[in-house]
Design a protein around this nucleic acid. Structure first.
Length: 495
RNA sequence: CGCGGGGUGGAGCAGCCCGGUCAGCUCGUGUGGCUCAUAACCACAAGGUCGUAGGUUCAAAUCCUACCCCCGCAACCA
């Protein structure tokens, strides 16, 4: 019985605090996971942290900590975000986990036939302990801006992975659909990129320039560079190679990545897998970036939005709502506090929250809370499911909201409050009203079902309110108005 | 000619692949309705020569050509 699915998220480099992009990864993966669970699948859901490298070591030193102490501290923030987003992660891997480290060394050995020693030459800054591209050197007139020292021409020994040898197989896999890249234009983009073949990639650094990392087996002078170390997490977390059971989940059904790291996941990673004799992931889901007011989010501009701030102020479901519906799943999206707050008030408060309230109130008022029986007209959900299958979560949500609108319209057309006026005199009134209100409650329950992957708390509230034949009015108002970033219209008339 | 995305009423978008039934949706604005509800909900209205110039066609936002303008990417930032 093939009911097990596996979805992964990119593991963030923990040298800074979590941002919206990380949250997008977790959110999209979680929506998919919950949707599949609803369909009866068992879903394994990985997340993790990339903890090696010079930047980490440097940051640790700045803070007077050992690298391990520093990452121990940093990882907490990411776990907190995962929890805050409500992502049902089942496995969390850190690249400093001893099991992972051992597995990476095993992988290195197994890839031996495809590894060779070469030399790398480039512009190096002693202060940064890092190489720079020709362009960067040019832009800074040959002087490191951080250290005010001239770049040096340095040549060093590196191990390389023969990714070039796998170009054809990878291209075939993408073209045949064995490994699909979603959306299509990302696939095209990547195929274009490897038109002339993949270039071999440097996978190690001399110990003197990279001390915080996994040692290369049998070569004390070299340390494994990020690629093999980080990408391997997707299988080491499952237990590869020594803990049995990983075979049940690999190849991954979906790997969620941001558009900026497609090439690593569509190129290097498959090369590694092929070298190991493993299957390629079935699908790479490439999402876009979140912009702020049309501009790139960046620390230097100072427009970075902290996902936790959004969640703390408006709640998880509001966060999940905005970033699943108003940020296109497969494209870039935009965030501003004003826009966020407006959709919160209008769509969650006015459209949905108020709808739940008015239906519940009428049933309580006219029928003492008893929900009658009504045949539910089965809504055509195919557009919703198609959208879900195509990873167009935003479109699926549009479908749900059109149901919300329809129900509001239906209520206004049928006017239950007028039917209620005939309750004492007209014998038809009671069954008619009961039927209408039961229909409303039923429609809301359907909406609740569709919201399960997106807004688990809201879905649960809807079910709790209407599912057992008696209305249970909510303890508090659903999505009460918040006016922190937009004008409060209620003040307008008072002034 | 490095690669890719985009320019549609005040704002944000859909439609373009498979030309006509396309000028649509949400927000905002105006008017009206309703009173079950979170000053909410519902209806109607105003507003666009669909970046520019040509071309193909009975017919183009939709296909072709040229040009203009924005924005990403170009190996380690989701």
């Amino acid at each position: 019985m093939d009911k097990k699915l596996y979805i992964t998220t990119a593991i963030p480099y923990v040298n800074s605090t979590p941002h919206i992009g990380n949250a997008m990864d977790y959110l999209l993966a979680d929506i998919w996971a919950r949707y599949q669970q609803q369909q009866g699948y068992e879903v394994r859901f990985q997340a993790g942290a990339d903890e090696h490298g010079n930047k980490i070591a440097a940051k640790a030193a700045e803070n007077g900590l050992s690298p391990q102490e520093y990452t121990d501290q940093q990882v907490v923030g990411f776990r907190k975000l995962i929890e805050a987003v409500g992502a049902g992660v089942t496995d969390f891997v850190r690249t400093t986990d001893p099991r992972h480290v051992a597995a990476v060394q095993y992988i290195w050995k197994k890839l031996q036939p495809y590894i060779y020693k070469g030399s790398y030459e480039g512009w190096y800054c002693v202060g940064c302990e890092a190489f720079y591209t020709d362009k960067e050197v040019q832009e800074n007139a040959g002087v490191c801006p951080d250290h005010q020292k001239p770049f040096e021409r340095v040549k060093e020994e590196n191990y390389y992975l023969k990714t070039s040898a796998f170009t054809d197989k990878i291209r075939d896999a993408i073209e045949s659909g064995e490994m699909t890249i979603v959306p299509d234009n990302r696939r095209t983009e990547f195929l274009e990129l490897i038109k002339d073949g993949l270039q071999d990639v440097s996978i190690s650094r001399p110990r003197r320039s990279l001390s915080w990392g996994v040692p290369v087996p049998d070569d004390p002078d070299q340390v494994i560079y990020v690629w093999i170390d980080a990408l391997a997490n997707y299988i080491t977390v499952l237990g590869y190679p020594d803990i049995d059971g990983w075979q049940l989940y690999w190849p991954a059904d979906v790997q969620v990545v941001g558009k900026d790291i497609v090439r690593f996941h569509a190129g290097y990673w498959p090369a590694m897998l092929l070298g190991l004799g493993l299957k390629l992931p079935k699908k790479l889901l490439v999402h876009g970036h979140v912009m702020v007011g049309g501009a790139k989010m960046s620390k230097s501009v100072g427009n970075v939005v902290d996902p936790l701030e959004v969640i703390d102020n408006y709640g998880v479901d509001a966060f999940r709502y905005y970033f699943s519906r108003h940020v296109p799943t497969l494209d870039d999206g935009d965030f501003t506090w004003e826009r966020f707050e407006m959709t919160y008030n209008n769509e969650l408060g006015n459209d949905l929250g108020n709808l739940m309230q008015r239906v519940a109130a009428m049933i309580v008022k006219y029928q003492a809370g008893v929900i009658g029986q009504s045949e539910q007209a089965e809504h055509d959900m195919s557009l919703y499911h198609d959208a879900m299958d195509n990873f167009e979560f935003n479109k699926a949500m549009d479908e749900v909201w059109s149901m919300v609108r329809s129900l509001n319209q239906y209520i206004d057309n049928v006017k239950p409050w007028q039917i209620a006026k005939g309750l004492g005199s007209d014998p038809e009134a009671e069954p008619h009203l009961s039927d209408v209100l039961a229909h409303c409650a039923g429609a809301l329950l359907q909406i609740g079902d569709l919201l399960v992957p997106f807004m688990p708390h809201t879905a649960a509230s809807i079910h709790a309110m209407f599912e057992d034949g008696v209305v249970h009015p909510p303890a508090g108002m659903m999505y009460p108005k918040i006016y922190q970033h937009t004008a409060d219209p209620r003040n307008a008339s008072n002034q």
